[in-house]
Amino acid sequence: MTTLLNIPLVIHLALPLTIILVYALVAIWGERKVAGFIQDRLGPMRVGGWHGWAQSIADLLKLIQKEDIIPANSSRFLFKFAPFMMFAASYAAFAVIPFSSGYIGSNINIGVFYLLAVTSVLTLSIIMAAWASNNKWSLLGGMRSAAQMVSYEIPTIATVLTVIVVSGSLNLMTVTEMQSGNDILGFLPNWFIFQNPFLIVAFVIFFISILAESHRVPFDLPESESELVAGYQTEYSGMRWAMFMLAEYADMLLLSLLGAVLFFGGWNSPFGDFMSGPLWGFFWFMLKGLLLVFVMMWIRWTLPRYRVDQLMHICWSILIPLSFINLILVALWELIF
């Protein structure tokens, strides 16, 4: 280590950040367009020419100019620190995501474990924001959020474990490499979702859990705007609020990408060797992730919100038993075939 500025490290730091920032701008615009189209509207149309593509940029510029309001009776340090901690948590998790066959931030052997551990800091930062705001709506939202995230981490982990049983590795790069090739029934890609019928059930449970973990409708209780103003974000304004928004969208992408790695073959092309390579790999990977993000948005504008007790009922008495039974079934299937 001769220089302080380590060029590969900077690139490793900057690449996922760039992807997240560009994705967040596109996704916020995309969410509004999806909402508009589903409701037979057009969504933002005026900023930037074609279909209002620059709307998020304009919103960002507006947020930068806004006053940074800190409530008088808040806990100042925690209040200021919480949004950055939240974004740091979801950003840190991107380190183990294999974006293409040629790029992974950190090729460690406990990839999935690290990812799940780091994202649980999100809960902590949400409680931090809620408590520091000194506002009843914030606190209620924060409590709901904590309960929800802690509960839904169990089925998420159980389903991830199901995939790990099949793959035998926690390293996401290895998991992806195991899904290369098109051998199932002669043409289907070797993705885990096609390898084992019980993994389809696992994917459904996983998808419901990540919806809840990233606070998406129908599990958006922590920030249910019709009841709690905006939950833990109520007292935040300007760029600090934007950090929450960014972290939330980053979390959505992270969990969708995790789903793409675990069930849909990560950066593998669906056509075998055709259109494969590091750059095509990145394209396929992002396409799969963004498709899952699109399904999340699609569900948002379809389903109504659950009640708190229903939310807990779904998690504790349906998803958790089902995911553990499924884990045993997958293990048996792997043992027999």
């Binding site: 999806v34 037979d40 379809t302």
Partner: peptide, 16 residues
């Protein structure tokens, strides 16, 4: 069923 309805509207014409 609900998602089918929403996706039909997604690709349907807008009234704006």
């Amino acid at each position: 069923t609900g998602m089918g309805i929403t996706i039909r509207h997604f690709f349907g014409p807008s009234v704006t």
